[in-house]
Design a protein around this nucleic acid. Structure first.
Lengths: 138, 138
DNA sequence: TTCGTTGCAAACCCTTTGCACGCAC
DNA sequence: GTGCGTGCAAAGGGTTTGCAACGAA
């Protein structure tokens, strides 16, 4: 898991109105260099692997802050926990129901040709597509 | 909220390998006659509105049993709680992020023209599409 | 009798929160 | 000194589970 340049990450945080602290930098570094869909718990473990860096409260607070500031996105697929997605561009997901593994689908690979009429008084906010898969029967 | 004929519901349960008990019939009745997306808590309230009919444990156990037997489906959209969907046919959902309200989209209204290649060693299990909406700015 | 079903309460797990400490400006 | 950031521990809320009592065949 390569480590993105810390200065670049700090700039990214600032661009989103987030003051870069050492904990936030470490957490952002884990999210952006690993580029997988991590749970809060996995972030917690990765961040504190070598030495204690951030407490559980800080990890949760920071992840929520990042979401609010648009640095990452929540993924709601696993009913038992939230996952965090370092990609914020339009894309979708494969979800393996056996392994729980998530993988990305580029927006261009799954274009939506037409939308049904939205309910009265509402406007579009976004579209989430999850393609559930399971291990192929041998 | 009209009440579906109990005998028809009992038959439906039996067809799915579920022994119809009075609690299960009442829970199924709530789900199938109301035809909305209810949380376990809402089912609990609806079922026991007039007189105590089923305990919390029974409601949860029964909902899980129904899901396992294919009578209803879980909907994972609200990170704070599961919703249960009395429809089991292919369809999708609108989700109002402000009100939390879910509504159905018939499969025919949102056809998928082509799927991206599935990850190696996996097969399709299903597709879930959620169109997030928010109240239109007046 | 026997096995499946129910109910209560406690346990569980992820997430949030209250509050005091600490650091930066 | 003031305010934001952090950490610990406890609370919170939805869901699951252990176990005893119950009920239908």
């Amino acid at each position: 898991m390569g480590r993105m340049d810390l200065e670049a990450i700090a700039a990214r945080l600032r661009r989103h109105g987030v003051t870069p602290t050492s904990q936030r930098l470490k957490i952002a570094s884990v999210l952006f260099s690993c580029m997988e869909h991590l749970s809060a718990d996995q972030v917690m473990l990765a961040v504190n692997r070598r030495k204690p860096v951030a407490s559980k409260a800080t990890v949760y607070n920071t992840l929520n802050l990042f979401v609010k500031k648009g640095l990452i996105r929540e993924v709601i697929i696993d009913p038992s926990k939230l996952l965090y997605d370092p990609r914020t561009d339009q894309h979708h997901h494969f979800y393996d129901i056996a392994t729980g593994k998530l993988s990305d689908i580029d927006f261009s690979e799954l274009p939506i040709h037409s939308l049904p009429a939205l309910p009265h008084g509402t406007m579009l906010d976004g579209i989430d597509i999850v393609i559930r898969t399971r291990p192929a029967t041998a």
